[in-house]
Amino acid sequence: MEETILELNEIIRRRDFPAWKNRLTERYSRVYSDPETLHQSSQSSVLVRNNIVLRSLEDYFSYVVVPSRANARLDDLVFLSEDVVEAIMVINERPYVLYLLRNVNNVWKIDTF
């Protein structure tokens, strides 16, 4: 599991959208490609301040995922089931979910809640 997290972090650090997209569940791709989700995400103060409007999953990756995960570190794993794991990073003694991972055909993929 730790290797998977390191691999995902490296994909994000390299800004490798095709590799990242391959590691998403169908549900995650569908949710974060949805125009309404992209519109809501575009309302974040950082994106508004920088006049960024998300129009695609690739925009979401470039302007939301990369800045928020490029320097992420794994502090804990929470196994919700055999096939679902939360990867946690602790900031100021508070846990934050970096990834919700789901095992799909023996490949750990990023899923949405």
Rank of each mutant, 00 (worst) to 15 (best):
Y99F: 14
I88Y: 03
R73K: 15
V85M: 04
I52W: 02
N92K: 12
M89D: 06
V66H: 02
S68C: 03
V65S: 03
L100S: 03
L57E: 02
P67C: 02
I91A: 10
D59F: 05
D75W: 10
D76K: 12
D83V: 11
V85L: 12
F79R: 15
S56P: 10
Y99V: 00
S81A: 08
F79A: 13
S68T: 13
I88N: 05
E93W: 03
D59W: 00
L98G: 04
Y63D: 02
A87G: 14
N71S: 13
V84L: 09
I52D: 01
V85E: 08
S62R: 13
V84F: 09
A87E: 10
S56A: 03
V66M: 07
R55T: 05
V84Q: 07
F61W: 05
V78L: 13
V85A: 04
A87M: 09
L74S: 05
I88T: 09
S81Q: 07
D76Y: 11
S68I: 00
I88D: 08
V97Y: 08
F61L: 07
N92L: 11
P67M: 01
V84P: 06
L77C: 01
N71L: 08
N71Y: 11
N92C: 06
F61R: 04
V90P: 01
R94F: 11
M89A: 09
Y96A: 03
Y96H: 14
V64Y: 09
V64G: 05
R69A: 09
S56L: 04
E86D: 15
S56V: 02
R55A: 08
L98N: 11
Y60F: 15
